[in-house]
């Protein structure tokens, strides 16, 4: 016999320790009276422990990767003042490690790894108008120095007066991604795509697909990549196809 949604919700909240005192008392009373619910609780407790074991196993794998990264960084830092031969050896080791890591990406891709692999920040290059505009020049300067925290308010101010300035909007979206304001970045890229009448729609789709990947909205990401991979005229056709195939592995 199955339990209902309310009972399922109570079991979940009981196992997560989020029932308040009164709810807990009522739940414990219900369990005493209802042997099916009691059995179900026991069953789900075992399942939760299994899921926890599974999650811990994945955490250990991530820790091992991070540990290697930190060791590698320490080694390369230590070698920067050393002799040339030592430098070459460490570099060779680092390259070998990179090859191993990239092989690992190939064998077992996850969204975070793929995002890191495929994301290249938008090139916010100077044009004639920006050299004449103090604000735009400052935005370029901070953005290209990767000082996104400083760049964001300036880019935002520019967009308040020029909401259809797509290049600025792409840079703004990228800066938001870099500072983990992913939901805001999504909105900016969506605005560009919805305008339809510009030259930058594909770039916006590409970055939107990547920010979806970063935030683990895989279906939304795949849908955009599908569109880009089917359009042979776009600059992102090849990359989208490649990323899509890795996501489908």
């Amino acid at each position: 016999m199955n339990i209902d949604d309310r009972q399922q919700d109570l079991i979940d909240r009981f196992l997560q320790g989020s029932l308040d005192r009164a709810e807990l008392d009522r739940f414990l009373l219900e369990i005493e009276k209802n042997s099916i619910l009691k059995k179900e609780l026991q069953n789900q407790q075992e399942i939760m422990e299994g899921i926890e074991f599974h999650g811990n196993k994945n955490l250990r794998q991530r820790f091992s990767k991070i540990s290697e990264e930190v060791k590698k960084e320490r080694k390369s830092k230590g070698s920067s003042n050393g002799k040339i031969i030592r430098f070459i050896l460490v570099s060779a080791a680092a390259i070998a490690l990179l090859v191993m890591v990239s092989n690992l990406f190939f064998q077992n891709p996850d969204s975070k790894d793929l995002y890191a692999q495929f994301y290249t920040p938008y090139q916010f290059s100077n044009d004639r108008s920006s050299s004449l505009n103090k604000e735009t020049a400052a935005a370029h300067q901070f953005y290209n120095k990767q000082d996104y925290t400083q760049a964001i308010p300036i880019l935002k101010t520019i967009l308040e007066t020029q909401p259809n300035n797509t290049r600025t909007q792409l840079a703004y979206g990228n800066a938001l991604m870099h500072t983990d304001q992913d939901d805001l970045a999504i909105l900016e890229f969506q605005k560009i795509i919805n305008r339809k009448d510009n030259l930058y729609s594909d770039q916006a789709k590409w970055f939107l697909a990547l920010v979806y990947l970063k935030t683990e909205k895989l279906e939304s990401s795949k849908s955009l990549l599908q569109q880009l991979s089917e359009d042979t005229k776009t600059d992102f056709h090849k990359e989208a196809k490649e990323l899509l195939s890795k996501l489908s592995d």
């Binding site: 075992e46 399942i47 422990e49 299994g50 899921i51 926890e52 074991f53 599974h54 196993k57």
Partner: peptide, 12 residues
């Protein structure tokens, strides 16, 4: 760790 947790993890 125990065998039961491992089995459920494999089912997952």
């Amino acid at each position: 760790e125990n065998e039961q947790k491992k089995v459920i993890s494999e089912f997952l």
